[in-house]
């Protein structure tokens, strides 16, 4: 809209808060509390984003929440978002089904630095719902497997029932070019795999010290995984952490996601560990 009564005739159509419509092509409960949505842009605009970036997902009348892309941009037709029902917005989004429209703003933020990962050994450490944003990178690596050297993937869930992407897990267990290791904090009668916190997986496999490491999980997990990284002797500039904060506006203004002087939504959510390890509020 134009300025109503001054000599300038400038029109202000651009609004960084304006979401776009995306159509849900598939919606399924992934666990008791997480719903897996597969979407495409309603205007058929290209599906361009970097693994690790996020969107602000919303419905008018309820509000917006930040959700990381859970699929790789190499899969161009659709993209995935996993939404855990925890509050007002996520519970409203959970009511959406196939054919419904979700409002999205994005892609936002800085994703995984693919240029710095290509040609190297990779270790992804994903805890709980941290598997969702890292799945965007995991799929990317699998789709372009020849661009990377060894690929170790650690996944820890609270219990077997909390595991996400069961089809993916089944294929990663079998895949020859993915060294997949998993654990659960609490086992169950049918669970025959590892039981214990995610750091126990470091004892099960050799990680070379020239590996590029990606970590994403609950806040408590980082400290302990980073201790393991130090034991192996991986330089901190080769470690990337995907951080979670209250990213309300997603465009570096509203202030909620600040870690000292950084805005997680625009400086991150993926950070090179060496650049934030001195920030007292990071971990």
């Amino acid at each position: 809209m134009a300025c109503d009564n001054c000599s300038c005739s400038k029109v202000y159509n651009e609004n960084i808060f304006m979401p776009k419509e995306a159509v849900i092509v598939r919606a399924e409960m992934a666990t008791a509390s997480e719903k897996h949505f597969t979407l495409k842009w309603a205007d058929d605009s290209p599906n361009y984003f970097e693994p690790g970036q996020f969107v602000e997902a919303s419905l008018y009348g309820f509000g917006e929440i930040p959700i990381g892309y859970a699929s790789s941009p190499t899969r161009t037709k659709t993209f995935d978002l996993i939404i855990r029902a925890v509050g007002r917005v996520s519970n409203a989004l959970h009511k959406l089904e196939k054919g419904d429209t979700m409002l999205l703003r994005g892609p936002l933020g800085k994703g995984f630095p693919l240029d710095k990962l290509r040609g190297h050994n990779i270790l992804v450490v994903a805890g709980g719902i941290g598997l969702c944003p890292t799945r965007s990178l995991i799929q990317y690596i699998i789709d372009r497997r020849q661009e990377f050297k060894s690929f170790n993937l650690f996944y820890g869930a609270r219990s077997p029932d909390d595991q996400l992407f069961l089809d993916d897990l089944a294929s990663w267990r079998k895949a020859e070019d993915v060294n997949y290791h998993e654990t659960v904090d609490r086992g169950s009668d049918n669970w025959k795999g590892n039981v214990g916190v995610i750091t126990t997986l470091f004892q099960k496999t050799e990680i070379p010290n020239d590996t590029r490491v990606i970590i994403c999980g609950p806040p408590i997990m980082y400290k302990f995984v980073l201790m393991e990284i130090d034991k192996i002797g991986i330089p901190h500039e080769n470690v990337y952490v995907d951080l979670e904060r209250r990213m309300k506006c997603g465009v570096g203004k509203c202030g909620h996601c600040q870690i000292n002087d950084k805005y997680v939504c625009t400086d991150g959510p993926v950070f090179q560990y060496s650049q934030i390890e001195k920030l007292e509020e990071a971990f």
Partner: peptide
């Protein structure tokens, strides 16, 4: 209005 939104940037001199 429902799930249709419009920007409302209306500056005033």
């Amino acid at each position: 209005h429902g799930q249709k939104g419009s920007s409302c940037i209306q500056p005033e001199s």
